[in-house]
Computed example of a mutant assay.
Amino acid sequence: MPSRRTLLAAAAFAAIIGLAPAAQAAEKIVIVVGGYEKQIYLPAKLAESLGYFKDEELDVELLNDTAGVDAETEMLAGTVQGVVGFYDHCVDLQGKGKFVQSVVQFSQAPGEVILASSKYPDMKSAADFKGKDVGVTGLGSSTNFLTLYLAEKAGVKANEFTTLPVGAGATFIAAMQQDQIQAGMTTEPTIGRMLKSGAARVLIDMRTVKGSEEALGGTYPAASLYMPTAWVEKNKDEVQKLANAFVKTLRYINTHTAAEITEKMPKEFYGDDKDGYIKGLEAGKGMFTADGVMPEDGPKTVLAVLQSFKKELQGKQIDLSKTFTTEFVKNVK
């Protein structure tokens, strides 16, 4: 396949000799994913595997990162155009005077659980976080936000326990096995591995809409494609193509079995436990939206959760209508 440089040179040569210019290669769009092996962010890699970016004539590069807060930092620095991460960052950033918006809403539940180490059978709820070390993907990440909220709701102040950034997958598992953390928030496929080994048990389950409503007080839109508002306004054609690709992916998830979806994923995502990966996806597939549209009551729940413990958001007027848009997903044919 000719390189971008070769195509541009060909276009320039054609213009010089008076021929119709050749089509130029699309500009690369870089999207960082807060851990693309996590099932909550499955639509990112699945869209690539299904060829939907190419169908839209998009040159998309997916970068992997361990935590949403690091992905957010890269986007704000301008090194990437978008993030596949939790919608709550859009709300949090507006409180800091920065405007970003979810352009495709992947899920309507966090897809996360709090696991408690089997070494601590007396740990029954978030009230037992007091004096403990609780694992999150990163400080300032969505798992950190949710952990602080669940603790606050249970009467445990932020200074009465410690949140430790331990990532996901192997690093999370090692941290719990080595007793660096006594509980922690994580997602599939890490959940399945921990439960299968007997090293942990589920303390709080937010893998379904019902579970999220019970834990968080309402529908909690989570995984999304979010981008700087200014970039979205200047690049509407590209954003529409991204929306086309991701909505097609969500439709695929909605109309195919967990086993069929797993066949499209890289083998390293499930390793030697393909059945466990499928089982986890079967349990959590319902968290994904079918159309990429923001759940109507979701943003208010997210704001309420964040304002319960984030002092910088308390008393601030947040315009939730500027934290997401349905313009592009509703235009998908």
Results as ranks from 00 to 15, higher is better:
K236F: 08
G217R: 00
S224Y: 05
I204P: 02
E238T: 09
P266G: 08
L281F: 12
N254F: 05
I253N: 04
T249I: 02
G184L: 03
G286W: 00
T190G: 08
V239T: 03
R193E: 14
K285N: 13
M287S: 01
D237S: 15
D275C: 10
Q180C: 09
M294I: 07
A259D: 14
I278V: 15
A175F: 05
D297N: 15
M176H: 10
G198D: 06
L216R: 00
Y226P: 01
Q307F: 04
K310P: 07
P221V: 00
T289K: 02
T187V: 14
K248D: 06
P228S: 07
Q307C: 10
T219P: 08
V293D: 03
I204E: 14
K264N: 15
D272K: 11
F309W: 14
S197E: 12
N254D: 15
T257A: 12
V305Y: 08
T257D: 06
N244R: 06
K248Y: 07
I173R: 12
D237G: 10
S197K: 10
L306G: 06
P295V: 09
P189I: 12
V305F: 11
N235W: 09
A290L: 09
Q180R: 15
L306P: 06
Y220D: 08
A200S: 09
T187M: 13
A215Q: 00
Y220P: 03
G198T: 04
K316Q: 14
V202P: 05
I253W: 02
P189K: 06
L203D: 01
A259R: 13
M265P: 06
V302K: 00
Q240N: 12
F246T: 00
T289P: 04
L250I: 04
L225C: 05
P299A: 05
G276R: 05
K236L: 06
K300Q: 15
R251L: 06
K196L: 10
E268N: 14
G280D: 13
H256A: 04
